[in-house]
């Protein structure tokens, strides 16, 4: 379970986002909707330990991630969290397999790679370089890298942002299916995808709407 309590995040341009308390239950899928700059991605980054709030706490299974050192946050992220980035965060000159095997640097078991690539329909692309893949294929590789380590929590920051609706819908369908039993929090602008999630949260209500971030 993820409990976000009294969290406030300040930025260098002196804007600040204050979050109302939110709870994400284990094994449920959440879609975060809201205007650009309302703090959706910031929330995911704070849950992942990439950003730290100025105040408040983010408890994950009873542990406050905000109290951890950077090293502990890194370890937590690599072990417990699968993060899917909007711009994929893949190394274009490396193959699909190499991009997933980066996790081995932190001794993460990637033996489920083939099985997951098969499920996502890109096993045949395993030894292809990322730069030779389509946008949809790249997003699937990013999903594969996020879930290969069997994380407890999957965070997806606009996973369909770079894809057309048809491909984006297919990706979300696959993502929600493959995340079954895990906590999935996905940021998206497209309300048409809400049917694939257990809950939809309007972040405008949580943070009070758009900030000039």
């Amino acid at each position: 379970m993820i409990n976000v309590k009294n969290v406030s995040k300040h930025f260098k341009n002196e804007t600040a986002i204050d979050y109302n308390d939110i709870t994400f239950e284990d094994g449920k899928t959440y879609m975060l909707l809201g205007a650009s700059g309302c703090g959706k991605s910031t929330l995911l980054n704070m849950i992942a330990g990439i950003l730290s709030p100025e105040s408040g706490s983010i408890e994950i299974n009873g542990e406050d991630i905000t109290k951890k050192s950077q090293k502990e946050k890194d370890l937590f992220r690599i072990k417990k969290i699968g993060y899917i980035f909007q711009d994929f965060k893949l190394i274009p000159e490396m193959t699909v397999a190499d991009n997933i095997n980066i996790l081995k640097l932190e001794n993460v078991d990637t033996s489920a790679m083939d099985e997951i690539l098969e499920k996502l329909g890109i096993l045949s692309k395993k030894n292809k370089k990322i730069k030779h893949l389509s946008g949809g294929e790249k997003q699937r590789v990013a999903i594969a890298r996020a879930i290969v380590k069997k994380p407890e929590i999957i965070l997806a920051d606009e996973p369909t942002g770079n894809l057309n609706f048809a491909i984006g819908e297919a990706v979300i369908k696959e993502l929600t299916e493959i995340s079954r039993g895990k906590t999935l929090i996905a940021v998206t602008h497209d309300e048409r995808l809400a049917k694939y999630f257990d809950y939809t949260i309007d972040m405008n209500e949580v943070t009070g709407g758009r900030r000039d971030v």
């Binding site: 990439i50 090293k71 890194d74 370890l75 937590f76 992220r77 690599i78 072990k79 969290i81 993060y83 980035f85 965060k89 893949l90 190394i91 980066i102 996790l103 640097l105 932190e106 890298r145």
Partner: peptide, 19 residues
């Protein structure tokens, strides 16, 4: 960019330095 990418997915700076 490559280092930032590895950091985002959780690879520690110690491992990156070593790499």
């Amino acid at each position: 960019k490559e280092i930032a990418l590895m950091r985002l997915i959780g690879v520690g700076m110690r491992k990156i330095n070593l790499l």
